[in-house]
């Protein structure tokens, strides 16, 4: 493949420089220490004291988006909650990510009796990518944790590195996000203020999920469930602080 890559690059930059202003101190992004946090471990943000008002705003917003909210009294009740959801909706195949919160809930044991098929992902098993994806595409339920939940917009922040990847929250029919109550932030600003974003700390993929996938491409009629999940459930676990 022979491409004139360098040529078009320098030609283009030359053109741009002609009409760009010269560098000014203002234009330098504020210096960030790229090596401050080695590795790209996703930062699990944990915040204290979330009040009832915030939670009820979150509930309202989720409802508006056509997403669901279920409260779970404690981590020990999580598998029961998931089993119930599975039974209600006749889901037969389930995939569980390798997020710490899910491991801690010991879902591997808790979901033992799940109907037909369960796929417990681990960040250590080097399963070939295409096998995982085939399996995930057949699952009706995909369970993940998240970095944070934003009440104002009912957004869940997921950084996918390692914990079952990007597919588990995308391919199954229904995506269940498990979060501690203490992971709820009031606004996106609020959450962003608690983080530092540098090239070194940002994982390869971060997704803000706000409701199930949707479209209005046909006569502006809102249809939920296009390519991504048809259904989105947030399981909010008491505690975490």
């Amino acid at each position: 493949m022979s491409l004139p890559a360098k040529d078009s690059r320098s030609l283009l930059l030359e053109k741009l420089r002609r009409f760009s202003r010269p560098a000014s101190p203002l234009s330098e992004p504020p210096p960030k220490n790229d090596t401050a946090q080695p590795g790209r471990a996703p930062q699990i943000a944990v915040r204290e004291a979330v009040n009832e008002e915030t939670i009820s705003q979150l509930a309202q917003e989720l409802k508006r988006l056509g997403a669901e909210l279920r409260y779970v009294a404690g981590l020990e009740n999580l598998s029961a909650a998931i089993l119930q959801l599975g039974r209600e909706s006749h889901y037969k195949r389930i995939a569980v990510g390798a997020d710490p919160i899910l491991k801690e809930a010991n879902l591997a044991t808790g979901l033992q009796n799940f109907q037909d098929f369960k796929l417990i992902l681990s960040d250590r098993t080097p399963t070939p990518a295409n096998q995982i994806r085939e399996a995930l595409s057949k699952c009706q339920l995909g369970i993940t944790g998240c970095d944070a939940v934003i009440a104002e917009t009912a957004t869940m922040v997921l950084s996918h590195a390692g914990f079952g990847g990007r597919s588990i929250s995308l391919l199954p029919e229904c995506h269940v996000v498990v979060a501690y109550r203490a992971q709820v932030f009031i606004s996106l600003d609020d959450w962003m203020n608690s983080q530092s974003f540098t090239r070194a700390t940002l994982p390869s993929c971060t997704t803000f999920i706000t409701g199930p996938s949707r479209t209005a491409d046909i006569e502006k009629v809102l249809v939920t469930g296009v390519h991504g999940p048809l259904r989105l459930v947030l399981m909010l676990v008491q505690g975490g602080d």
Binding site: T153, A161, S204, F208, T210
Partner: peptide, 22 residues
């Protein structure tokens, strides 16, 4: 007229060695 779209995806490079997809 949405507050946020269903998905905002932020990509930083291709998948890393330990990732299973991307």
């Amino acid at each position: 007229g949405q507050k946020l779209t269903s998905y905002v995806t932020i990509l930083n490079g291709p998948r890393e060695a330990r990732e299973t997809d991307g």
